[in-house]
Nucleic acid binder design. Structure first.
Lengths: 307, 307
DNA sequence: TTGTAGGCGTTATCAG
DNA sequence: CTGATAACGCCTACAA
């Protein structure tokens, strides 16, 4: 692989001039510039990215720690992020992690000059202590000191609940996230919607991340009056819930309507359900914008999707 | 961020000694070594990866071009690859690409010293001309000059066909990949299985990547005798086929059994179907082994999964 | 066992 | 407008 010395020799100019021509480059005599470009062409020269990084103090790499659960959800985030980063001439260094230790480990390994910035995306578990400057994308329990961008869960829950009410459902159960900021937001939106329709709020209709779904749903159904709608955190749990309902011979959506609070990554061919869907492109765009140091909104609103 | 000079100063030794202690490190007086380690500890020193790369002529990064279609399939490959690379102390630089141009572009951008090696995974389209040393993982049309590791499609098709026959199905239709090496292998395995059971081969039961699935399946069903089993390339197409069959009021699997030739990444909660599943970990392991310069088998056999 | 010096490939500074 | 030259941070002969 040819280097800058080869080019400068062939073009009969100094390395400095070569560098000037290739980057920024103003104040170079046209003849020199052409000589350089010709040499670059014949040698098929491409500047070495590592050497540039060392000199620049910037690598153009962004470390992305994908902490989605289930892992399948990672693709959407990664695809959107990679596209947006590429658009800005940056590279995506990928790590997966499925617990706090894994995240901590990944952060450490990515924090040795390889990356200009680090991002954690989709974590649903409590994160380890974070160093400065880590960006959190749609993580359920954002640390206080970290910048974070995520979905507007409150708006989603309110929109969803309003929709269900508009469909004649008034006994709406809520399968919530594990306790945390997201769970609080969802609960808030849910209650607001109920309130504005003068529907009483029943605490026993709320389930915080039960360990086993089947008995939990059975309990909800056996209440009096039993629920006729079920809000779930995402499509994955929605499908599970629908399978359980089917097993208990409850017609979906006639008897019980299942609503997914995050249907952004509906699996192709899966049974459809009403949902709030988010633009992952928007998330990625705002995230990258934030990495570039710009100020951006911190909450992203989804839109209602009906089958 | 502390650098090697800070450490050497604090430890009262030369940079060379620091370097020796941290890497390889033989022939260092215990006291010096301890002084260095102490200094490293107090300064929280971590060698700069970029500078190491420049000096080493190796970055420890592997560029992975994810060309899976649909994109959802990427997760499994990426997860397995990242895990295996991490185990070897390497990083994964991610690009997505969904056509030959995208792949060519990605290859170019990853080929500027940032990566020690490049991998293309899951491409179902014809690849652009490849530079030396690119590794192809489960790409349908491997170029002649490239190293490639992929699934044993012939074995899969044969196993699948045998299974269907053992289930009493003798009219087995095949929805194949687009023409290429993989399609040929599948067809071969299919024919071998039929032959060994003395079942005649009917060319009209074979469909090469039809543009629209619904009419194609309708055609297969309307033949005399109509098929009672359908081999499809993957779960995604399997689900699609099952939806179409349901729409045409054909009971699955009673009337028509759908078999997926690659069920490695079955979506959770999706309707189950018999399939050949591959160990993506094995693929990743062999791939990384190959990147490290070792010789490995070039075909991976799946195993039969029945619901 | 240790330190000095040179090199890795670029970019930036500063004279000319 | 151009060319030396000094960083960038690390590794590694080679010499002591």
């Amino acid at each position: 692989m040819a280097n800058i010395n080869d080019v400068s020799r062939l073009a009969q100019v100094s390395k400095a001039t070569v560098s000037r021509v290739l980057s920024g480059s103003r104040g170079v005599r046209p003849e020199s510039r052409e000589a350089v470009l010709r040499a670059v062409e014949t040698l098929d020269y491409q500047p070495n990215a590592i050497a540039q990084s060392l000199s620049n103090h910037a690598t153009g790499c962004v470390g992305v720690i994908c902490a989605t659960e289930p892992m399948q959800l990672g693709t959407g985030y990664l695809y959107a992020l990679e596209g947006e980063l590429r658009r800005h001439g940056k590279h995506l260094l990928l790590r997966f992690a499925n617990d706090a230790d894994g995240v901590a480990h990944a952060l450490r390994e990515l924090g040795r000059g390889l990356c200009d910035a680090r991002v954690i995306v989709g974590a649903r578990f409590a994160l380890p202590p974070l160093p400065e400057g880590v960006l959190l994308l749609e993580c359920l329990t954002p640390a206080a000191n970290a910048h974070s961008i995520g979905f507007d869960h409150c708006f989603a829950a309110e929109t969803a609940t309003r929709y269900l009410i508009s469909q004649g459902r008034r006994n709406i159960a809520l399968l919530n996230h594990p306790a945390g900021e997201a769970a609080d937001s969802v609960l808030l939106g849910y209650r607001q919607a109920l309130e504005s329709h003068l529907i009483p709020y029943h605490r026993q209709r709320i389930l915080d991340a039960p360990s086993a779904l089947a008995p939990a749903i059975a309990t909800l159904l056996s209440q009096d009056p039993g629920c006729n709608a079920l809000l779930v955190p995402d499509d994955h749990q929605g499908r599970e819930a629908m399978a359980i309902l089917a097993a208990q011979r409850r017609a979906v959506p006639r008897e019980v309507m299942v609503f997914s609070l995050d249907g952004s990554q509906a699996a192709p061919g899966a049974p459809p359900m009403p949902a709030i869907a988010y633009s992952l492109e928007a998330l990625a765009q705002q995230g990258v914008e934030r990495l570039l140091g710009h100020d951006v909104a911190t909450r992203i609103r989804g839109r209602l999707i009906t089958p």
